[in-house]
């Protein structure tokens, strides 16, 4: 069995940069001083994003967890537990772009298998959890992202790309590879989860109906 939590190559030190510090101040202000351990998840996320900003790989090294534990006055072990429990925290290095394909039933029914296949083709990744040879992409399988009306979903880092199919997946990945981030949201002609091609009901105004 793979021990998913096994720490990979770890950096020697971790320090929150000024951008992160500003965020932390905002987060900590939400909790009373003696309950500041509640901020562990936001802080882990801030650390992960800082790693993404600075090193191009958004993950949380053990030293960062230790720094968070110290900052929040909690045992380091408690931070490890939280970080390893949630799949959104990466405890080992990942690629520049984190391709998270939803394969739960609605997405699967709407063709998430095609999305997975397109990801594999475009990046050369064989299996979930792998990172492409060029270090740009990591593909993981995720459970329901809660956007079933726009299934299937490909989440890249924090952004949802919705209404995907093989072709659009390849396009998104090509754009990412070129260093551009496509606009997130539906990949077809519709506004959020409204019908494709615009509104289908309530086309006339209510006053017109009465006349």
């Amino acid at each position: 069995m793979s021990t998913a939590w096994t720490p990979a190559e770890q950096p020697d030190s971790f320090v929150f940069d000024s951008a992160s510090e500003a965020e932390i101040a905002g987060v900590l202000s939400k909790y009373p001083e003696e309950r500041k351990a509640s901020a562990v998840m936001p802080l882990l996320y801030i650390a992960q994003r800082q790693m993404g900003r600075v090193t191009g790989s958004a993950w949380v090294p053990v030293v960062a967890m230790d720094v968070i534990a110290q900052r929040l006055g909690m045992a380091a072990m408690r931070v490890y537990e939280v970080a390893s429990f949630y799949t959104m925290f990466n405890t080992r290095p990942i690629g520049r772009y984190h391709l998270q394909v939803c394969t739960t039933t609605p997405c699967w029914l709407r063709g998430s298998d095609d999305v997975v296949e397109a990801c594999q083709k475009a990046t050369g990744i064989q299996h979930f959890g792998e990172t492409s040879a060029d270090g740009l992409f990591t593909m993981t399988e995720v459970e329901c992202l809660g956007a079933c009306a726009n299934a299937p979903i490909l989440q890249v880092d924090d952004d949802f790309y919705e209404d995907m199919n093989a072709e659009r997946t390849a396009q998104v990945i090509a754009e990412l590879r070129a260093g551009r981030r496509p606009t997130p949201g539906p990949m077809i002609d519709r506004n959020v989860s409204a019908p494709e091609g615009g509104r289908k009901t309530l086309l006339s105004s209510s006053t017109a109906d009465q006349e």
């Binding site: 021990t3 998913a4 537990e81 429990f85």
Partner: peptide, 24 residues
Amino acid sequence: TEVAGTPELGLVSRGENAEITTYV
């Protein structure tokens, strides 16, 4: 954690992958 006061053991990961470990 409670008696010895050395919180070095924890249950990390989740579900089928959950393990008791010191993590480090």
